[in-house]
Amino acid sequence: MKARRVTIKDVAREAGVSVATASEALNGKGRVAPATRQNVIEVAGALGYTASRTAKNLNAGRTGSLVLAVSPMSASDASKGPQPEWDVEYYFRVLSGASARAFSRGFLLSMLPFRSPSSEFLMATDGLILVDPSEEDDLLDEAVRTGVTCVTIGRTARDLSWVDNDFFTGTTAALQHLSATAPSRPALFLSETTSSYVRDELSAYLEWCSTAGLEPIIIRSPGPRVDEAEPVIRAALSASDRKFDAVVTTLDTLASATERSARALDLQVPRDLQILSLSDSRTLDYGLHHSITALDLDPVRLGELAVDLLIAEVEGDAARRRELVPASLTVRDSTLAQ
């Protein structure tokens, strides 16, 4: 038979004090005589009492819950069912790191699969982590308006704490890698330009093209999913006047669509076409005919840091903090330079 949990009432009865006095003694609050406080602490230890997480949060005026959401990559995504962004492995790896860190810190973290700027929903949580925020995100607008503590993974113009990668430096290093063995004429394949990481990648690409004396080539998918991206990249690759011999993608799903299209068109990777993703995933290493060179953004670490920043603010630290996580290039079969 499972042993009954020792409660604060048991401690109070054994110590000969009221429940309120026992609670104040254990929480270090109230005007409790030092001898009484010490007696309550000793009795609690002898009985094996530990305060429940729920009780601690209620005493602190908190719910003990955090929420992680992803900003939609297009305006139409915000009004539909499960967000297509959750098809991107990067976001689940962020969620994995964030949820484990939150639990270790005494909080439960939930994923928001649908978008809703509901103030009622936001007021039921202690804080919000928003990944890849756009400058006009309804959920972030509502959270700021209602006073919910917010941290972002990615940057906005708002006065919020954030964690991010140095995408400009990472993109520049990736482009240099493509040309390390032979001159390269890369195209940039993206699905949106509202997120700070895409703007950084685009800026780095345009500057690199200007320095190399090359015409920028931007290919845009209507969405982040492979099935949305594949028709677009296949048409670009099969064009009779194609002017690029490499594709740099902002998402792993776009890289997967590119590799699938190259095979369908009998293009040899990397001889005829180099492919590089600015976001890594297991699919790019094991799920394709040619493994794809990619930037490892360390999404688990991003999630952990975001939780640490959020909890610090939930617990009363008003300072704004910004953290950069290094990205590293993982070289695989899809590029010439090894």
Rank of each mutant, 00 (worst) to 15 (best):
V232C: 09
L122Y: 10
L206K: 10
S18R: 01
Q338H: 09
A60N: 11
W208K: 02
R242Y: 04
R93L: 12
D296Q: 11
G213L: 06
E135I: 00
D245W: 05
S99C: 02
A25I: 02
S116K: 06
S99G: 01
T258V: 07
Q338P: 00
I233Q: 07
I218V: 13
L251H: 15
R4K: 11
V247I: 15
A33R: 11
D285L: 12
A173Q: 13
T156E: 01
D200Q: 13
Y197L: 01
A3I: 03
V325Q: 05
L278Y: 11
H289P: 01
R93G: 02
P117F: 02
D200R: 03
T63I: 02
D272F: 06
A3P: 14
L178P: 09
L190M: 12
L108D: 14
D280V: 05
Q83P: 01
D245E: 08
Q38L: 04
T171S: 10
L128C: 03
D164G: 04
V32G: 02
V247W: 05
T193L: 11
D296W: 06
A78Y: 06
A246C: 06
Y205L: 03
S281R: 12
S291R: 09
I233L: 06
G45E: 10
E120S: 13
V331Y: 03
N59K: 04
L95Y: 14
L190T: 13
A212T: 03
S196M: 01
R31C: 00
V32D: 03
L310D: 11
D87E: 14
R5K: 08
S221G: 07
T152S: 09
S79C: 01
F103T: 14
L295M: 15
S65H: 10
R322V: 03
R13M: 01
P84H: 07
G97T: 05
L284R: 08
L237C: 10
Q176W: 01
T149V: 12
R185G: 02
T125F: 14
I218C: 04
A312V: 03
V40D: 05
S52I: 00
D308V: 05
